[in-house]
Design a protein around this nucleic acid. Structure first.
Length: 299
RNA sequence: CGCGGGGUAGAGCAACCAGGCAGCUCGUCGGGCCCAUAACCCGAAGGUUCUCGGUUCAAAUCCGAGCCCCGCAA
């Protein structure tokens, strides 16, 4: 068995961790994840998805607030990280007997950073993939061990694409990690000149710019749904567009109109999007038809 | 005590501010029209107006308390 210290926080990472456990090839000596934080309207303390998995398998857990001056209590053959959310100092990377390995959800050097899946969708990419790499002290900068490409369908949203990547990532990681420990893989330096970066998104990033075309807005929807979602202002209130698709109706830019039971919004260059599911500030989500029934007089 | 919107027929909303027969668009059911229809016409059923208390001749509406849903923020 290969001993491992695992660093991770979010959902994708939790699945990766569980796959490592299931493979029975790895001995997870320690899981490092971000501290429990308040979330939701009532500010209830929530565990990270990775912590939940770690507890399910009774693994040892560490939740340092920061890794500055943090001393890893356990050394292992490999440090494996995925969506941990904090930069890991070189001192900690160097504790691994063989290497510190990272799983990243893009084809590096493209989309280094916090939101590779969302950003690829927003930019209308046709393909993306998984990169398994060696870590260095710069974010997503280390040498590449293995990559696997997948195609992005034009209707994939974050959920579908995330699932596609999740379907291939565990096997790629497990095989690459094992092969690396056995010395069967050589690493390859990234083409740093071609690197692009992506930031973490906030709700403001979901505000729709109606000067964009329906394709651009649809891509924004694909990348930011379900979180943080896309929205616009309507009568001074926030209107979330929970489900949309490109359409060909001619609608004045930035305007909402109803046609039979359907709802359309006008985008740039005479394009439009159909709104299928919608939520007004303070209200529950509703289908376009329900919205039309209730708000017909002001459409 | 973080800020704000909301709870009215199966759905989405109006009426509330300024108390006086609870209404609109759908859906459902029945009938009509039609070659036909999810279209159109006629009709019907369906309500403890979230709960409890208060004010009043009279409360969906005003006052007090509570429960629940949601948008921000974190």
């Amino acid at each position: 068995m290969i001993s491992v210290v695992y660093f991770g926080t979010h959902h994708f990472s939790a699945h990766i961790l569980e796959s490592l456990i299931d493979s029975k090839l790895f001995d997870i000596k320690l899981v490092v994840t971000q501290p429990d934080r308040p979330a939701g309207r009532k500010k209830e303390i929530q565990k990270s998805p990775v912590k939940i998995i770690a507890q399910k398998y009774n693994l040892k857990i560490e939740q340092p607030e920061t890794l500055k001056n943090y001393i890893l209590p356990t050394a292992a053959d490999l440090n494996i990280t995925c969506q941990y959310g904090l930069i890991i100092p070189k001192v900690i990377l160097d504790t691994a007997k063989h290497a510190s390995i990272n799983v990243h959800t893009s084809l590096l050097p493209k989309y280094r950073g916090a939101s590779p899946i969302q950003s690829a969708l927003i930019n209308g990419e046709k393909e993306t993939g998984i990169t398994v790499m060696l870590m260095d002290e710069k974010m997503d900068h280390g040498d590449i061990l293995k990559q696997q490409k997948i195609t992005i369908d034009s209707d994939d949203t974050f959920v579908e694409l995330n699932n596609k990547l999740l379907a291939i990532a565990p096997d790629l990681l497990i095989k690459t990690a094992s092969d690396y420990v056995e010395g069967k893989i050589t690493s390859q330096t990234q083409l740093h000149d071609e690197a692009t970066f992506c930031k973490e998104f906030t709700r403001d990033d979901g505000k729709i710019d109606w000067d964009k075309t329906s394709e651009q807005i649809y891509n924004l929807y694909r990348g930011l749904t379900p979180w943080p979602g896309i929205w616009t202002e309507y009568n001074g209130q926030r209107l979330k567009l929970l489900e949309v698709k490109p359409a060909h109706e001619k609608v004045k830019q930035g305007k909402l109109i109803s046609q039979q039971d359907k709802l359309f919004a006008g985008c740039a260059q005479n394009t439009s999007i159909e709104i299928i599911k919608i939520q007004l500030e303070g209200k529950n989500p509703m289908q376009a038809k329900e919205f039309i029934n209730g708000f017909k007089n002001i459409l």
